[in-house]
Design a protein around this nucleic acid. Structure first.
Length: 752
DNA sequence: TCGACGATCGTTTTT
DNA sequence: CGATCGTCGA
């Protein structure tokens, strides 16, 4: 038996593999071979230390990461990879909760509620309190509860135990309590409670915890910078006995703090795990020297970091292109045109990616790619499982599996329309409350003994419709263990009348819905084929916890990838376009309101974007951009100024290189920023100083009385106007009362 | 019960 | 600009 070959690793990576005992934190910079190191470490445990796969637990955040890790280990070792626990935090917790459900008074067929279902529950609770969604947004309540759970709180937990300040007199706390009661009644759990539920379980039942502590001798956590406090606590609990915990992360790539990721987990690791060893992977294997150095300069501005010195042996490479476009359309045109050029030079499309800060930005890019016949795919656009018809059918399946899931039942009780409207539903719900039973039980008994429920006064038509539905659900339910999920699905789809309902309406939308429902059928079949013991319950769990497995994106068949920067984490491309590098976009206007911490996160996001590129990085921005239906002049992103001059060329779309600096350096320059720029094309509405108009129509662009928008001062009205063309001058009164005079030629003005 | 129409309001989203 | 949502009216 030859010893494992570690010669492919650098010294730091090797240390990270060999330091198997005791707590380790590996700070792995972008492109530093993090996954390779983790994978080798696990293989080493199995092959050299003969650790049983059963004793290794690796926690990730995405199913994608888990799959990749499993596959790579599988190709390295002979041990049974199937026994390795490589899963997401949530799937891991769901598994524990199902097998230990009785401890917490759950039954193991509990449903997992996603955000939209959470919202529905909150809405109902607010309604019960007579609070309109205008007074209190359900999302506020959701956010509040999420925050509590992210910090490890569960109802009944000793508050002092919890890393959070809680005001139990707060009305939101009351909503929280009612929400939890509601979920418990529905035998349901939300994403946050999957984690806190396990914490609760471990805290209340030390022997259960002990069982898991003894089982998992080696614990690994990937993307550690994204863990929240609750997950941190879980890691602490699980590793308390063996203390063989290895976390891998990069504080510079922490971009999910808005979802509860807590950078303290990294910054305080050594305090909590006193004998922790810290290893840094600082050599980058991905990007050119130029890109790495530029990115390093940008991220160095952050204060919230441990600090790494990234370096690379890769060649210097080309300068970054910072491309100044006239407007958002021109930006799209530039990207498409450049991609064509690259393609002509022989670069495959799949080596290229376009990033943007917000999903809405993809639209224009897509338009331009389509016009140029460039194949592309949008990663993570509209979610398949969030479509109405899919949610409807999932609700059917849910009520089959978990009869207490009243939310699911109320969703489909009148879908397709059976004449059971809000009033009837209300009656049934009230009756269920007085009888202290679930909505389903109520339905079931009403249908079985209608004579006992004359007081609800249901019409014959309604009764028959209800009876039909109850029969269907019951029929499916009895066969749930003996019949393939796909057949159950088919029965529900057709006998509920859903399919015929869609079929009868001939419009385009229904057509698309039917196709989606067929796709869902395919997904179930696929699930059955790839699973040893498929069940409807397990399928439902899979799709709520793993939304990526949509089956609809066959791997890179030679398309350009389009995605948000969040979606780009962990990926790499030869050629990267970072678009919309403007103030208010990137950094987002929201982050600008939220102070330095928020800006630092945006900067990390920018850093992530830059470090995806291997060979060539284009960063584009538009002088003017349509935003919320208005043309805005945002100015280039502050992050562009944080890249030292020597790493980039500042260009215009036609390819000419501008002076190394630029005219946007300070806000004071805004009034004349486009002094020496001319554009051969562009719609009149975008023309700030229109020389064409000067020749053809010698009249004022902003005559007295018109409403305008100034990129800096906002909306205003023209009080006075003189001259035209290059000579046009205006005096403007802004909505805040301020009056200012401008030379139109130099002012960022547009008609409102 | 359902549709049509206006008011509103706009990040990011591994689970 | 556009999607989403709530309120009306038939």
């Amino acid at each position: 038996m030859n010893r494992m070959d570690l010669s492919g690793l650098n010294e730091q990576q090797r240390k990270a593999v060999l330091r198997t005992d005791g707590p380790v934190m590996i700070l792995a910079g972008a492109g530093s071979g993090k996954t390779k190191t983790l994978v080798t470490r696990i293989s080493y445990l199995l092959e050299e230390l003969h650790v049983s796969p059963y004793q290794v637990l690796a926690l990730t955040f995405s199913n994608k990461a888990a799959r990749e890790m499993r596959d790579r280990i599988g190709s390295m070792v002979e041990a049974d990879v199937g026994a390795l626990q490589i899963t997401t935090f949530h799937a891991f917790c769901a598994r524990i909760l199902r097998s230990e459900a009785n401890y917490l008074g759950l039954s193991r067929n509990f449903t997992i509620y996603d955000t939209s279902e959470q919202k529905a529950v909150v809405k109902a609770i607010l309604g019960r309190h007579g609070i309109s969604t205008k007074e209190v947004s359900p999302f506020e309540v959701l956010y509040y509860m999420d925050d509590l759970k992210n910090h490890g709180h569960y109802l009944g937990r000793d508050i002092s135990e919890c890393d959070y300040e809680i005001d139990q007199g707060d009305s939101f706390f009351t909503f929280y309590q009612e929400y939890e009661a509601e979920l418990h009644k529905a035998n349901a759990v939300d994403f946050g409670s999957l984690i806190t539920g396990v914490i609760q379980l471990f805290e209340k039942f030390p022997d259960v915890l002990k069982r898991y502590q003894e089982r998992f001798k080696y614990l690994l956590v990937d993307e550690y910078q994204d863990t929240n406090r609750a997950q941190f606590e879980l890691v602490k609990m699980l590793s308390e006995q063996n203390r063989n915990v290895c976390v891998v992360g990069d504080e510079d790539q922490s971009i999910y703090s808005w979802r509860g990721a807590d950078i303290r987990n990294i910054l305080d690791f050594e305090e909590v795990f006193s004998d922790a060893k810290i290893l840094k992977l600082e050599q980058n294997y991905r990007s050119s020297k130029n890109i790495i150095e530029a990115a390093t300069h940008v991220i160095a501005r952050n204060s919230q970091r441990k600090g790494k010195d990234m370096w690379t042996n890769n060649p210097h490479g080309e300068d970054i292109d910072i491309v100044e476009c006239f407007n958002d359309k021109t930006e799209g045109e530039f990207v498409a045109q450049k991609i064509r050029e690259l393609s002509k030079e022989g670069h495959p499309f799949k080596e290229m990616a376009v990033f943007y800060r917000t999903n809405t930005q993809s639209r224009l890019i897509e338009d331009n790619l389509r016009k140029n016949n460039i194949p592309y795919r949008v990663v993570g656009g509209v979610k398949f499982y969030e479509r109405k018809e899919i949610k409807d059918l999932i609700a059917y399946m849910r009520i089959v599996v978990n009869e207490k899931d009243s939310l699911a039942l109320s969703r489909i009780i009148n879908v397709p329309a059976r004449g059971i409207g809000a009033t009837t539903l209300r009656k049934l719900e009230n009756e269920a409350v007085t009888n202290n039973c679930s909505l389903w039980e109520m339905l079931d008994t009403v249908v079985a003994n209608p004579e006992n429920y004359k007081h609800i006064r249901l019409s014959a038509k309604v009764k028959s419709a209800l009876s039909h539905l109850v029969t269907l659900i019951n029929e499916v339910r009895v066969s749930v263990d003996n019949v393939a999920p796909s057949s159950l699905y088919e029965k529900l789809l057709h006998e509920s009348g859903y399919w015929d309902f869609l079929k009868s309406s001939k419009d385009y939308e229904s057509q698309a819905r039917m196709e989606n429902l067929e796709e869902l059928q395919n997904a179930i079949v696929q699930y059955e084929e790839s699973n040893k013991s498929p069940s409807l319950l397990n399928f439902l769990e899979t799709i709520t916890l793993d939304t990526s497995g949509e089956g609809d994106n066959p791997e890179n068949t030679g398309e350009v990838s389009l995605m948000t920067i969040h979606g780009a984490k962990g990926l790499e491309f030869l050629h990267v376009f970072v678009t919309g590098a403007e103030e208010n976009i990137f950094p987002s206007y929201k982050s600008l309101e939220n102070g330095e911490t928020a800006i630092e996160e945006e900067r990390r996001l920018f850093y992530v974007a830059m470090t995806r590129a291997m060979e060539k990085l284009y960063i584009t921005f538009a002088q003017g951009r349509m935003l919320f239906g208005q043309l805005r002049f945002n100015g280039p992103s502050r992050f562009l100024h944080e890249i030292p001059n020597k790493y980039y060329q500042w260009r215009k779309p036609n390819g000419s290189t501008m002076s190394s600096g630029n005219s946007w350096d300070s806000e004071d320059d805004f009034d004349d920023y486009n002094q020496d720029q001319s554009y051969d094309e562009g719609e009149a509405v975008y023309q700030v100083a229109s020389f064409k108009e000067e020749k053809s129509a010698p009249k004022a662009k902003f005559p007295k009385g018109v409403k305008i928008i100034h990129s800096l001062y906002g909306e205003g009205t023209v009080l006075d106007s003189s001259g035209y063309g290059a000579e046009e001058k205006v005096s403007i009164k802004f909505s805040d009362g301020a009056r200012k005079k401008f030379l139109v030629k130099f002012a960022p003005l547009v008609l409102a």
